[in-house]
Design a protein around this nucleic acid. Structure first.
Lengths: 110, 110
DNA sequence: AATCTTTATCGTAATATTGCAATATTAAAT
DNA sequence: ATTTAATATTGCAATATTACGATAAAGATT
């Protein structure tokens, strides 16, 4: 064993898990925050921002991309990275809904 | 190597990564959704809701608890589980902020 | 007290993640 | 055409996660 049993869960559940998992590492949180901080897409420059070697950063970027959290487009010999709004929206909506439902039940629970 | 270099990131970054990581598995997403669906805390009953063996579910619950996403209190020979509002709020706020900043920059980016 | 029920822990196998040095790739610059 | 710069890929070691059978622990039931 050891492999996640994704087939037993719904598509939506797996989708949210993939997004959450992609953000489940401080380096990837830092990448996302940097993309927001610079307030535009970034061509190059990400490696120098992180306390990790270039191949490690490249791998983290790949994981964020696979999860659909960032988009990358080739721009000469650099690559432009952007947050993917759709993914962020999904996360925001998801936790928004949970939060709303939680507030509703406040009186019914411990 | 193989261990995350948490010491190189901020407390807030590590904190968000821990929360996201805890939700980075469909079983744990399913647990959270079940807690919301029943609209109250749940004493017992979680194991039967999931397509996983009891020790596996117990382990997932432990991880959610360690991350601060759920609270558990002993209730006779069962255990009552609840979502922790604070953690959900943190997640909602975090993605809310990101989303807001993303909207602001729409014109400046690819 | 013996048994049942519920949850936790231990041990362990299978698999995945993290990190980086070395190397490859690709396009720009000289 | 060479060199330089930026990013990706490969290979591998260290560590973490996932899953579950076996077993333990602790309160409830009989």
């Amino acid at each position: 064993m050891g492999a996640t049993k994704t087939e037993h869960f719904t598509n939506k559940q797996n989708e949210m898990a993939i997004l959450a998992k992609a953000l489940g590492h401080p380096a990837r949180i830092a990448i996302v925050e940097y993309l927001i901080k610079v307030n535009s897409c970034i061509c190059g420059d990400i490696v120098n921002e992180l306390p990790l070697a270039q191949p490690t950063v490249s791998q983290h970027l790949k994981e964020l991309k696979n999860a659909g959290l960032i988009k990358g487009s080739i721009e000469g010999n650099a690559i432009c990275y952007c947050l993917d709004e759709k993914a962020i929206e999904k996360l925001q909506n998801y936790f928004g809904h949970i939060s709303t439902k939680l507030t509703d039940k406040k009186t019914k629970c411990c």
